[in-house]
């Protein structure tokens, strides 16, 4: 069978995934997390009389804790396959990538397993975050010094 013909037939039998529905689900689940986050901030402000800055720190802590716990229980991967980007773009995705790497390489020992593999996925976020923040920060600083 020719390659092109094979590809054509293979395309016909691929499971059809509706991309619009994925986008809509990501929107809803991501929005829901945002809603819960803001709700938590307002809850902490009114019940524990924290300042808004402290309350948002605690809100982020709650999300990181939940994401790590669900990753440990093995639930998070199933949730991601349903809700997709809605769970990966908030801070939960960051916590999940660290916890799952640490968990996956646990068998290789505490130093070369957990210790050196924890940042395997999350490292890129931190590296590019710091390099770009340093780069843009330098530009902004120089503009302030020389032009303002």
């Amino acid at each position: 069978m020719k390659n092109t013909k094979y590809n054509h037939i293979a395309d016909l039998h691929k499971p059809k995934e509706n991309r619009l529905i994925h986008i809509f689900i990501s929107f809803l689940s991501g929005g829901f997390l945002g809603l819960v986050g803001e709700g938590l901030v307002e809850f902490f402000v009114s019940y524990f009389s924290l300042s808004r800055t402290d309350a948002s720190t605690f809100m982020i802590l709650v999300f990181i804790f939940m994401a790590s716990l669900l990753t440990g229980l093995g639930v998070f991967d199933k949730l991601v396959s349903i809700f997709r980007c809605g769970l990966l773009i908030p801070i939960t995705g960051f916590a999940h990538s660290m916890a799952s790497c640490a968990l996956d390489y646990r068998n290789e020992g505490p130093i070369y397993g957990i210790g050196s593999n924890m940042f395997k996925l999350a490292g890129s976020v931190i590296v590019y975050g710091i390099v770009s923040a340093w780069f843009f920060g330098t530009i902004r600083y120089l503009i302030e010094v020389f032009f303002l």
């Binding site: 991501g30 945002g34 980007c85």
Partner: peptide, 9 residues
């Protein structure tokens, strides 16, 4: 938050 997640998707 939903908007950002939708863009990523």
């Amino acid at each position: 938050c939903g908007f950002l997640c939708a863009i990523a998707q």
